[in-house]
Amino acid sequence: MKPGDTLLRDTFNTFGIHIMQKGHTLQREDIAKLLQHGVDDVDIEEVFSEPADISQSLSSHPLQDAKVQFNSALEGFEDLFLNAAARGEFDGSQVDDKLEPLLTELQEQKDVVSVLLFLNDDNNYTYTHSLQVGMLSYYLATWMGYTEQEAYQAGKAGYLHDVGKSKIPSHILNKPGRLTTEEFEEMKRHTIYGHDIIMQSTGDKISAMVALQHHERMDGKGYPHGLSLDEIHPLSRITAVADVYSAMTTARVYQTKQELLRVLKELHKMSFGQLHAETAQTFIRNMLPNFIGKQVLLSSGEVGQIIMTNPSDFFRPLIKTDKGFTDLAMQSNLDIEEIFM
């Protein structure tokens, strides 16, 4: 697509929401809007222009450069994961080469919800999830006051936290239904496998510790060792929060993705006993402002925009639709089905 092209058909996003009308002549901001909504295929009547115009239109979205780095880091993790599956180790020197450019690019991006919505790949949960956890761990460490170097370490540990799943048999890892007791016991071993693979590949003790501990819980009911409270490394607590949020908001073979604010509410509940309270609350507090201005699809079928966070219920905001304002805190019969840019 480039400025001047004309849409030959009405354009809808993946949720069936009408985005742009047939016959509309595209401008750069229209192309950015289509990118924001995840529309990557349209029927157009082309107009021919100089290559410079095409280049400018492709780079019009503020996250376009980050998307390039995201795809590179995603490919890097796939290569890392497959090598770990085949050889029990990976080339540790490639981790920083793939991850550092992405996290450097994200330093300027403050709207984390837009980052998650734009930088996504639903085709492979395992790889996308690991990259999301790395990004969220980096952001969360920053919000908690860690230095840039410490935040990068948190992001790196999050990026590698699930590498142990490379040793889980595919019939268990990709099983669409509920795991048996025996299968779940094997799945839990990915934490131990991950620790050993990272130590063998890089000798990075902190990343290895996070891989081992990211399913431990403050109440001692996690795995693999049933640790609790201060026995759990601070970066493991960060990755645990990022891991839960990404897992619940990403589509998997056995679970559809959940609405972003609803998952924040679930994290709030988990902060009372399971997840580290300060870490989870810091994540929630810094994520909530990012939802202001986002488009939503309501359970009524209406499309609206989040206007403000509701002080009586942070997770049920005020929505503006074509019909007026809808206060979800006052209308329990309505829910947000999907949030998009």
Rank of each mutant, 00 (worst) to 15 (best):
residue 238 I to L: 08
residue 66 A to N: 07
residue 164 G to F: 01
residue 269 K to F: 13
residue 75 E to H: 03
residue 47 V to F: 02
residue 275 L to Q: 06
residue 51 P to D: 00
residue 293 G to S: 13
residue 19 I to Q: 07
residue 183 E to N: 04
residue 238 I to F: 08
residue 59 S to L: 08
residue 97 D to P: 00
residue 214 H to V: 11
residue 70 F to I: 13
residue 210 V to S: 12
residue 41 D to W: 10
residue 125 Y to A: 14
residue 52 A to F: 04
residue 144 M to R: 14
residue 165 K to G: 07
residue 175 K to I: 02
residue 116 L to Q: 02
residue 114 S to V: 07
residue 232 I to F: 09
residue 198 I to M: 08
residue 224 P to H: 06
residue 153 Q to D: 11
residue 170 S to C: 05
residue 163 V to Y: 03
residue 95 V to L: 11
residue 181 T to V: 14
residue 61 H to Q: 08
residue 63 L to F: 06
residue 265 K to L: 10
residue 143 W to E: 10
residue 56 Q to P: 00
residue 37 H to R: 11
residue 311 P to S: 13
residue 203 G to S: 07
residue 49 S to G: 10
residue 246 S to K: 05
residue 198 I to A: 10
residue 59 S to G: 02
residue 78 E to R: 13
residue 249 T to V: 01
residue 213 Q to P: 08
residue 4 G to K: 09
residue 336 I to K: 08
residue 230 D to C: 05
residue 16 G to L: 08
residue 269 K to H: 15
residue 87 R to C: 02
residue 144 M to C: 10
residue 151 A to G: 01
residue 193 Y to S: 03
residue 61 H to F: 08
residue 51 P to N: 00
residue 19 I to A: 07
residue 37 H to K: 10
residue 101 P to I: 10
residue 339 I to E: 09
residue 223 Y to R: 14
residue 252 R to Y: 04
residue 100 E to D: 14
residue 271 S to E: 10
residue 336 I to L: 06
residue 241 V to T: 14
residue 166 S to D: 03
residue 210 V to Y: 09
residue 230 D to Y: 07
residue 221 K to C: 14
residue 277 A to Y: 06
residue 39 V to W: 07
